[in-house]
Each structure stands twice: as C-alpha cells, then as structure tokens.
C-alpha cells in the first residue's frame, strides 16, 4: 500500500515531464528548411560516427597491407589478426607477418582487470552512497545539512590535488599494483553519487516511512525494503554512469596499476601506444585494442541508451 502511495505521488511529475517534451515539438514547417535541417543533422551524425567506424575499419585491416591503401574505406585485406594479436592469441610469427611489433600484449587480461576494478568500485560506491543519501535525505538529525555541505565541498577539489596524497597513501599501504589500490579512493563514496541519490530520496513520501516506523520497522529495513526498491531505476542509472566513468578513467589507474594483473584497458592502450615503434607503428593492433576497450561501452549504450540519455538530459535542467 505504501508503495502505491509513493508511485501515485510521483506519477504527476513524470507525466508533466513527458507533456513538456511533446508540446514544444516546434518542428519546422517549410520543406526547404526541413531539408537543410535534416541534412545538417545527417552531417553531424556522420562526423560523430565516422571516427568510430574508422576504428573498426583499421582493427580488421592487415597492418602491412594498409600502408599501400590509406584511403580504402573498407578494411584492407580483412583479417582478425590485430584482434588476435592484442588478445594474446597470435604467435609472434603471425603478429610479425601482419605488421605487429611481436611484443606480448594481453588485452583479455586487462579486460578482466577493468571489469573487476569497475565492478568493485561501482557496487560498493553506489551501496555506501545510497546509505549516506538515506541519512541525508530521510533522517532527522542535528547538523545534517552542515555535514552534507561539507561532503559537497569535496566536489570543488580538482582530481589532481587529492591524487598526489592518495597515491602516497596507497603506496604506504602497500597496495600499488593491486585492483584494490585502484578501487580504494572511489569505492566508499563520491560527493556526486550522494548528491545524485539524495535528490531522488528526497522525493520519497515521508508518510510511508512514518507508517513503517509505527509498524515497527527499523531504518535498515526501511532503507533496504522501501527506499531502495522505490529508487531502483535511479540507482541503476547511477551505477551505469559511474561504471562508464571508471572504465574510461586513465591517470589514477595508470599511476597505481602497472603490473599485468592490475593494468586496466585504458592503461594498456596508453602503454601499447608508447611502445609501438615510431617508424612502423602497429595502427591495426592499436585500433583493435581500442575496440576491445570500447565495445563494452557500445553494448551498455545499446542496452541502457534511453536511461543514459535521460539522466544526462535531466542533469541539464536541474
């Protein structure tokens, strides 16, 4: 019953949002402007997609053959060689034959590292930040707003500033070159995550909580059985956004994770690039590595595209 009350309370705001989306469809009337407008959009989409296509095109090209046909729009001498090369599935001879460097690289391992680190960070950060958001949004206690303000100040501190001392700390803890060391600074909370969830928790109908208290539920039960299920879509959205952010992060994992068992995909890519011979770079291998690192994001976008776009649009109106 309580859940129904909340949903009913929330519905108006949702439908109002939809209405405002629909009613301002100020679509152009004249055919000429329609044509040029659509044309401009098509050009933007082409510029957006072409570099991504070029990554695919190059990743499936024979690096040796590519030198003779730099303008070919299709993969040159189509091959899975570069992918096999970066995933450590090709022998040195096979790699050299297709213009690879022959150095051993294993993006499969880096993929595993990235999945482990990002899952660890995301799951813990979202859990702990939800708990904090509950305390900030739905509990009454002295000094609450002051403490929240202090947490938010951390948003203003540039990443590089805390990164130097955090590096020293992780080093002193002996956690360099471990997944835990990479995850540590972000896995307890981020001010953004708490801020994001607090917004949604504030919208939870307080009478439900009062009713649950009278029914004898404790706060952990209210949090886990009422608030979390109600805000589940937002929690998932936050999880996806944070996962993508840490998946793409570079500087921190580069400083902390240099070993084979802690190197993340972005770090592996950077190192691959810096080690590729200057005169004869393995572009196909590099793009294959980039592809391996980017494909999970493409899949997330295919599955959760609507959620991701929606979350970004709503952050603009706030």
């Amino acid at each position: 019953m309580a859940i129904i009350a909340f949903k009913a309370g929330k519905r108006p705001s949702l439908s109002a949002k939809r209405a405002s989306n629909a009613d301002d469809a100020a679509l152009a009337k004249s055919k000429v402007s329609l044509f040029f407008g659509r044309l401009a959009l098509v050009i933007v989409i082409l510029i957006t997609l072409f570099p991504i296509y070029w990554m695919f095109r190059t990743a499936f090209s024979n690096n040796r053959a590519m030198f003779s046909e730099p303008l070919s729009l299709l993969p040159v001498d189509f091959t899975f060689g570069p992918l096999q090369r970066v995933l450590g599935l090709a022998t040195t001879e096979e790699a050299l034959a297709e213009g690879g460097s022959g150095a051993s690289i294993n993006f499969g391992q880096y993929m595993l590292n990235s999945v482990l680190a990002c899952t660890l960070i995301t799951v813990l950060q979202v859990t702990f930040s939800s708990m904090a958001a509950y305390a900030f949004a739905l509990l009454n206690w002295k000094g609450r707003d002051k403490v929240f303000a202090i947490f938010l100040i951390a948003l203003m501190v540039p990443g590089i500033f805390t990164l130097l001392p955090n590096f020293i700390l992780v080093k002193d803890l002996g956690l360099l070159n471990t997944i835990l060391g990479i995850a540590l600074p972000a896995m307890f909370m981020t001010p953004f995550a708490i801020f994001f969830l607090r917004q949604f928790f504030l919208g939870v109908n307080r009478s439900i909580i009062e009713a649950a208290v009278i029914d004898g539920a404790n706060h952990w039960r209210i949090f886990s059985r009422i608030v979390v299920p109600l805000a589940w879509p937002q929690i998932i959205t936050l999880g996806i956004l944070q996962f993508i952010q840490y998946w793409n992060d570079y500087l921190w994992p580069f400083l902390v994770g240099q070993s084979e068992t802690s190197k993340l995909l972005t770090v592996g890519l950077g190192i691959f690039k810096s080690q590729t011979p200057q005169g004869n770079p393995d572009w196909a291998g590099l793009m294959a590595g980039a592809l391996v690192a980017a494909v999970p994001i493409f899949i997330l976008m295919l599955v959760f595209g609507r959620k991701i776009v929606g979350s970004i649009q709503s952050s603009g109106v706030k």
């Binding site: 991504i52 070029w54 776009v309």
Partner: peptide
C-alpha cells in the same frame, strides 16, 4: 540523441588514439 552522445561515453584515451 543516443548517437550524438556516444563519443562522450568512449574513453578519452581511445578518442585521442583514434
């Protein structure tokens, strides 16, 4: 909308290398 925001979801490092 999904297509035009796709580059933003790809890592800086990948975009830079491409």
């Amino acid at each position: 909308r999904g297509v035009i925001m796709l580059p933003y979801l790809i890592a800086n490092v990948i975009v830079a290398l491409v």
